[in-house]
C-alpha cells in the first residue's frame, strides 16, 4: 500500500504533466497507477472513471479523490486532491501575475496548437482505455448510441443521460443477475453471490457473459 507522501508525489506529478484537463488525464493516471505501480486493478480504474464522469465537476480531481479514498481512506483522498491541484494553482498564479503577455507570442501559440492536437489523441486514447475494460457486452454499446445522440444532437442535459442510463439499464442488469443466480443456484436461491464469489471481477463477468 502506498504511503500518503508517495501518493501525493504521484498525483503532484500527474497534475504537473497533464494538459487540457478532463479526460486527457486518463492515460496519465492509467500509466502511473495501473501500468507502472499496480496500485489499482483495471476494474477499479474503470469504476473510478465511471463515478468521476457520472457527477458534474472536474473529472481529474474527482478521479484523484476516489483513487486516494480507495487506497488510503480520507487522508489519502486529501493527499491525492492536493497533489492534483497544487501544481496547476501555483503555475496559474505565477502566469497570471508575471507571464500573461508572454503566452501570446506566436511561437508559444504554435507550440500550444500542436500540443492541443496531440491532447485530442490523448483524450481519445483515454476513452479507449476505459471502453476496453467497460465494454464487456454489445449492450453497453447499443445503449450508448441513443444516449450519445441525445446529448450530441438533441441537447439533452448530461444529468438526464446519466439518469436514463441508470433507470433503464439498472433494472435490466438486476433482472439478468437474478435470472443468472436462479439458474446457477437453483430456483429458490436469492440473487446473492456465494461467499467464494465476492470479487467484483468474478461477479462482473458473471453478469455480462
Amino acid at each position: 500500500m502506498p504511503s500518503l507522501w508517495g501518493m501525493f508525489a504521484v498525483f503532484f506529478r500527474t497534475g504537473l504533466l497533464t494538459f487540457g484537463g478532463g479526460y486527457s488525464i486518463l492515460p496519465v493516471l492509467h500509466y502511473e497507477l495501473v501500468d507502472k505501480r499496480h496500485w489499482l486493478s483495471e476494474l477499479a480504474f474503470t469504476d473510478i472513471i465511471s463515478r468521476a464522469t457520472a457527477i458534474p465537476g472536474a473529472i481529474s480531481v474527482s478521479a484523484a479523490f476516489l483513487c486516494g479514498r480507495l487506497l488510503r481512506g480520507k487522508k489519502g483522498s486529501a493527499a491525492a486532491v492536493l497533489g492534483m491541484t497544487i501544481p496547476s494553482i501555483t503555475t496559474m498564479i505565477i502566469i497570471a501575475a508575471f507571464l500573461f503577455d508572454y503566452a501570446q507570442h506566436p511561437p508559444v501559440q504554435r507550440f500550444m496548437k500542436g500540443a492541443a492536437a496531440a491532447v485530442t489523441a490523448q483524450i481519445t486514447y483515454g476513452v479507449w482505455l476505459y471502453a476496453r475494460s467497460a465494454v464487456r457486452s454489445i449492450w453497453v454499446i447499443l445503449a450508448a448510441v441513443p444516449l450519445f445522440a441525445g446529448v450530441a444532437f438533441l441537447g439533452v442535459h448530461p444529468l438526464l443521460v446519466v439518469a436514463a442510463s441508470l433507470l433503464v439499464g439498472g433494472p435490466l442488469v438486476y433482472r439478468k443477475a437474478q435470472l443468472k443466480a436462479a439458474h446457477s443456484f437453483g430456483a429458490h436461491s436469492p440473487a446473492v453471490p456465494s461467499p467464494g464469489d465476492q470479487s467484483p471481477e468474478s461477479e462482473y463477468s458473471k453478469l455480462m457473459e
Partner: peptide, 17 residues
C-alpha cells in the same frame, strides 16, 4: 453491481461528446 454496470453507456456517451 447493476448500478456500476448501468451507468457505463452514459459514461461512454459523455466521453465521446
Amino acid at each position: 453491481v447493476p448500478i456500476q454496470d448501468a451507468v457505463k453507456p452514459a459514461v461512454l456517451a459523455l466521453m465521446l461528446m
